[in-house]
Computed example of a mutant assay.
Amino acid sequence: MVVTKQADSVPALRRAVRVLDMVRGASHPPLAADVARQLGLPRSTTHGLLAVMVELGLLEKTVNHGYRIGTRLLEWVGGAAEKRDLVAEFYHALDGFSGLDSFTITLTLLEGMEVVYVACRSSQTGLSASFRVGMRLPAIFTATGSAILAEMDDTSFREWLTLYPASAWPEPLTSKSVCSVTGLVREIAVIRERGYAVDSENVYEGLWCAGAVVRDYSGHVVAGLGISLLQAEVGRYDIASLGNRAMALAQAVSKRLGYRSVSAA
């Protein structure tokens, strides 16, 4: 068939797409040997393909010689330059942290009354919920969204509530989702005191998440960072330590974006 001949005329493109799919779904940046083994490709072919994909910006090589999705793909998706930088620095910061394999790490932006997921690294153990880039959830139910709202000054928060009053809020996703302005204000006060937000089955039954904010060079909050795990696994950890991990990783991303706290100045 003519279609088959046309498809077979570009085998390198098909291999490249298979590589991208594999890298995207991997829990850790795979090595060249991993790619060759899992896709059944000759090692010489794999090394040549990976080198070209890195050269073209389709992949990036990590300090540990693994491969992750490159920023050029984000450009094609149409993300703004600052968002591409944010996502890239998120993954760079993750490379410098250990002990996070059991958690799903997400990065979100506040858009209106929702958060949109712009980056995600899944845990090795798996979660009952599937996070994906482009997914949207009500900000008031999520740890990352609540953390961002808590960083607003009182005037900005009142303006946000005027734009998005409780009458316009979506139906609670679980029995634990916040459903009133009073409840949200109370939650924000707690977040401001301890420095991080908590979603304890507010979005999905059986899912727990700690959220903290990411700042740019000027100190402006640009994103929320979440560390998620199964609710059943939370008892293995100290809650404060999980919140501190979220804050530490968020601070690392902020530092890569040029932010310096007053104490660090």
Rank of each mutant, 00 (worst) to 15 (best):
212 A>C: 14
221 V>L: 14
226 G>I: 01
210 A>T: 07
199 D>E: 14
239 I>P: 08
202 N>W: 06
212 A>L: 12
237 Y>R: 01
238 D>T: 15
225 L>N: 07
190 V>T: 15
184 L>K: 06
230 L>D: 05
195 G>M: 07
219 G>R: 04
240 A>R: 15
237 Y>C: 02
188 I>Q: 09
229 L>Q: 08
223 A>Q: 11
214 V>P: 06
224 G>R: 12
196 Y>V: 04
217 Y>A: 15
240 A>H: 15
205 E>W: 11
230 L>N: 04
226 G>N: 07
183 G>P: 00
230 L>C: 08
209 C>A: 10
195 G>N: 05
201 E>K: 11
231 Q>L: 08
192 R>W: 05
209 C>I: 04
185 V>G: 11
196 Y>Q: 06
190 V>L: 12
190 V>G: 10
182 T>C: 12
201 E>L: 06
201 E>T: 09
237 Y>A: 04
196 Y>A: 01
195 G>D: 03
191 I>G: 09
196 Y>S: 02
228 S>V: 06
194 R>M: 09
203 V>F: 00
243 G>P: 08
243 G>H: 02
241 S>W: 13
187 E>T: 09
238 D>Y: 00
222 V>Q: 09
231 Q>E: 11
215 R>V: 02
202 N>H: 13
190 V>C: 10
207 L>H: 07
194 R>D: 02
221 V>R: 08
205 E>N: 13
193 E>C: 12
191 I>Q: 10
199 D>M: 07
241 S>Q: 12
234 V>Y: 00
231 Q>M: 04
188 I>E: 03
189 A>V: 14
186 R>A: 12
234 V>Q: 01
221 V>K: 10
200 S>E: 03
197 A>K: 00
230 L>T: 05
204 Y>N: 04
236 R>H: 14
235 G>A: 14
202 N>L: 05
210 A>R: 01
229 L>M: 15
244 N>E: 15
225 L>Q: 12
208 W>P: 01
241 S>G: 09
186 R>Q: 15
229 L>A: 09
192 R>A: 03
188 I>P: 06
186 R>P: 07
211 G>D: 10
220 H>G: 13
187 E>P: 03
198 V>W: 08
197 A>T: 04
227 I>A: 08
221 V>I: 12
233 E>D: 13
242 L>Y: 00
184 L>T: 03
191 I>Y: 13
213 V>G: 01
240 A>G: 14
207 L>N: 03
201 E>N: 11
218 S>A: 15
243 G>V: 06
223 A>M: 14
242 L>P: 04
183 G>I: 07
213 V>E: 03
226 G>K: 05
206 G>Q: 11
191 I>T: 13
183 G>S: 05
223 A>W: 14
213 V>H: 07
191 I>L: 15
241 S>M: 12
200 S>D: 08
191 I>A: 13
190 V>M: 13
236 R>I: 05
218 S>L: 15
232 A>P: 00
233 E>Y: 10
197 A>G: 01
